[in-house]
Amino acid sequence: MPKKRRLPALIKDMGSCLFKKPVTQEYPFIKVQAPEGYRGRQIFHPEKCISCGLCERDCPAKAIELIEVSGRRLPHFYLDRCIFCYQCAEACPREAIEFSTNFELSTTEKAEMVVTPEEFMSKQKSTSDEEEKSVD
């Protein structure tokens, strides 16, 4: 049953808000860290890949394509189709695909919308979660 109407209950709450710090996070001037396990950009380990093609077949968004790179067929990930569902990482029998917490993927270069194996073949094979990427 509706209770008796009283004066606005928010008066005290509002007043106390004046003395609190605003809850706004001043992104992008202050960097925000995504928690571990966040499904961000893929990290690929070319040395583990056996070119089975299971990732390409299982991707719900058809965002992976196996293209020949220096003699082997390796997956290329199209980030503009990817839905970041993690299915490729699950399907891979050799755990060659790993996800990072990198979510800052906006760019003005079309070339950066594809994750290529060359990127990982030239770098040192590290197992860190963070991928340093400059955002345009």
Binding site: C17, K20, P22, V23, T24
Partner: peptide, 10 residues
């Protein structure tokens, strides 16, 4: 903005 716990023009 301060009443609403946010920053307002900054």
């Amino acid at each position: 903005a301060r009443f609403q716990n946010r920053m307002g023009p900054s």
